[in-house]
Design a protein around this nucleic acid. Structure first.
Lengths: 250, 250
DNA sequence: GAGTGGTCTAGACCACGAT
DNA sequence: TCGTGGTCTAGACCACTCT
């Protein structure tokens, strides 16, 4: 464990104290000047370590007072979601049911924040795995010049990809709402559901631009037996140390 | 916009270039020395800005080569999940159905990585909202000394809280698997489901300690009409700038 | 006034990549 | 060899909190 840069030693030592419970949420950390003396190093180096701890959610600082152990937020997870791939399934084929420019129905005017005369692109697709339909997918995008209405551009595109023809992916905010419902007649038909006992995982996706104006609404209805989502949370990934180890291994 | 520290000006300027599409994934950033000259500042200040950009996923650096615009990972979201609260519902009462120390059934031996003689605490609860049952919840924890088997400690505790009696919350890794299913007879009874058309949102929660040893398995079966999950993703939260504005406002 | 964190400087040495 | 990023120093000034 020697050979670690000083700032990472500080990170590790303080993490160890927090993980072991020696330091509890709300407790003060040694002051920066004290840490300088303890590690016989300069303040910038100490601060680099503390910045990492703050960034990973371990500590926070109050100017004029000190650094303190953060209360961990146990309700935040990292969710991995890709329309075409989930824990138990990968879409290997899609079928374009419809691409149309429509006048927005009442519901859309509201959720896309547009006027009733603004044209909207509607895209309806079916996703397949091994020739089985696994999801039904509808997307609505306010129509702007240069929008993709070319079939081959749309066919295999995920929602962010469709929108990013015009906008940098960095400039998009995305929202997901995950719910459960039973298929109606139409969905049952599309998804080959003859058995009334098969529920759907419904994922609503909304994209916004940097000014928080809606750029698109998508709803994907997955057959329940083809959709499992995965999320995780952990404080002790030790990204910095991990990377350092990787670098030193080479 | 003046009054921003130099390192945040650098962050903002480069973000603007990336968000607008002027800089695309893979493109090199000005070298650190060039930025020093451009902003008439020292290298540590430039590097502080670049560190923020790297941390927020905008750029990455290759030692000896330079800093480059990162390809954004569009399949990562932040999910907010708390057993007792979701988008459309808050649990206001719980009922303890059973707390027992059991010998693990076959399935648990595997997923908790224990021997068949290791005792396991089983906790079964019902969650209520407005006197209506909204979720059925089972948890399994390998039994160690000091484990909570006192009713009042368990009653309103979320899963991480149960485990954190012994361990710092920081030292826990959590995994969620979200799926959909129909209720069986037992679940229908517990959740007052007389209508066969009501599916369940099933959330499996697994906790691990720092050595990746399982510390607990929990499964929560939500009535579909009482559970919606929310997740979001955005690059341009501008946490640092936001905080700076807040500080300057005061 | 003493201590704290926030910002910043003007250097330094290193390992690495390109040439 | 020269430019790059990674680490680090020994100071500085500021605004803030505490007493």
């Amino acid at each position: 464990m020697m050979g670690l840069p000083i700032y990472l030693q500080i990170v590790e030592d303080i993490k160890e104290k927090i993980n072991s419970g020696e330091l509890k949420p709300g407790d003060p950390i040694y002051s920066e000047n004290t840490l300088c003396k303890n590690y016989n190093t300069s303040r910038m180096t100490v601060r680099k370590g503390l910045a990492i701890l703050a960034n990973e959610g371990y500590i926070y600082s109050i100017p004029g007072k000190g650094n303190f152990v953060q209360e961990p937020d146990s309700s935040i997870y990292t969710l991995y979601y890709d329309e075409m791939n989930n824990l138990i399934n990968s879409v290997d084929k899609t079928k374009l049911l419809e691409v149309n420019i429509i006048m927005p129905p009442y519901k859309l005017i509201d959720s896309l924040q547009i006027t009733k005369n603004k044209k909207v692109i509607m895209i309806r697709r079916l996703f397949y795995t091994d020739e089985e339909p696994v999801a039904y997918d509808v997307k609505y995008l306010p129509y702007y010049k240069g929008m993709p209405i070319v079939e081959k551009e749309i066919r295999y595109a995920t929602f962010p990809e469709m929108v990013s023809k015009n906008t940098s992916l960095f400039a998009i905010r995305k929202e997901l709402v995950i719910s459960v419902q039973m298929p109606d007649e139409e969905l049952s038909k599309y998804l080959n559901i003859y058995n009334a006992e098969l529920p759907l995982m419904v994922i609503e996706q909304k994209l916004y631009d940097m000014d928080n104006k809606p750029m698109g609404l998508g709803i994907t209805y997955f057959r329940g037996d083809y959709c499992k989502l995965y999320a995780e949370a952990s404080f002790f990934k030790d990204k910095a140390v991990q990377e350092n180890r990787n670098m030193m291994r080479q």
